[in-house]
Amino acid sequence: MTTTRSTLLALALAVLSLGLAGSALAQEDGSAYDVRFESVTDNCSGKGYSLDRARLVIATDGDETVLRTGDKLPDMKLKRRRGGKIKAEADVNAATGRRRVKASGRIERGQLELLIIAEIYDAEGAPTCSQSWNVTGTQAKR
């Protein structure tokens, strides 16, 4: 009888902790962050992105979670890691060439820190330039 109670108690605690972890992840979906972009590298001379400030939003789009910056950058497919770490990536093909954007960083206690790298390729697939930014911001007030 004691073993059964211990097992049930352990199972209940495990279910509760999974529920709390799931609600913490779900809470961040739809979260918005007011961010500032600080240029690290840029050899695009007018061909790339012009970024200063934006609102980043973590949104659910069907089965995927995406990182959106409005019209600043393409929507990036977001993957969550342990400890608040995130990675996101977008690959956009157009007649004029391809643009690949990657983001890596963390979200912790309402603070967002990312490194975003954009690579721009010509129509033949040859790399033409790249840009990178340190991105920092805080969770926006609703």
Results as ranks from 00 to 15, higher is better:
Arg98Leu: 14
Gly19Lys: 11
Thr96Tyr: 13
Gly137Tyr: 01
Ser17Lys: 08
Tyr121Phe: 11
Ala94Asn: 07
Ala26Ile: 12
Arg80Pro: 08
Gly125Arg: 05
Val135Ser: 05
Ala90Leu: 12
Glu113Leu: 03
Leu78Phe: 02
Ala12Asp: 09
Asn93His: 13
Leu73Pro: 00
Asp122Phe: 13
Gly62His: 08
Ala26Ser: 14
Arg98Gln: 13
Arg80Gly: 07
Leu73Arg: 01
Ser39Glu: 14
Leu114Ile: 10
Ile86Phe: 03
Asp71Ile: 00
Thr96Phe: 14
Gly125Ala: 05
Ile58Gly: 02
Ala32Trp: 00
Ala26Pro: 03
Pro74Asp: 03
Ser6Ile: 15
Val57Lys: 00
Gly105Lys: 01
Leu11Trp: 08
Glu28Thr: 11
Asn43Gln: 10
Ser17Met: 10
Arg100Cys: 01
Gly105Asn: 08
Ile117Asn: 04
Leu11Val: 06
Val135Lys: 02
Asn134Val: 07
Ala26Phe: 15
Gly125Asp: 11
Ser39Tyr: 05
Asp34Lys: 08
Val135Ala: 04
Leu78Tyr: 04
Ala32Arg: 04
Leu115Met: 14
Ala88Ser: 13
Arg100Asn: 09
Ala126Tyr: 15
Glu108Met: 06
Ala123Trp: 11
Gly48Met: 10
Gly62Ala: 08
Glu119Phe: 07
Thr136Glu: 05
Gln111Tyr: 08
Ala21Gly: 05
Thr7Met: 15
Ala10Thr: 01
Leu18Met: 08
Asp71Met: 05
Ser50Val: 12
Val15Pro: 07
Glu124Trp: 10
Asp75Val: 05
Glu119Asn: 12
Leu13His: 10
Lys85Glu: 07
Arg99Ile: 10
Ser17Trp: 09
Leu13Ala: 15
Leu8Asn: 06
Tyr49His: 05
Thr69Val: 11
Tyr49Val: 12
Ile86Val: 15
Ala12Trp: 11
Ala123Asn: 08
Leu8Arg: 06
Gly19Pro: 07
Lys72Ala: 15
Ser31Thr: 09
Asp71Thr: 01
Met76Pro: 02
Glu38Tyr: 05
Gly97Tyr: 07
Leu114Met: 09
Asp52Arg: 14
Glu113Ala: 06
Glu64Cys: 03
Glu64Val: 06
Ala21Thr: 15
Arg98Phe: 13
Leu73Asp: 00
Ala14Ile: 14
Ala90Arg: 01
Val101Trp: 00
Ala12Pro: 08
Thr41Tyr: 04
Asp71Pro: 00
Thr128Met: 07
Val101Gln: 00
Asp122Leu: 11
Ala88Glu: 04
Tyr49Met: 13
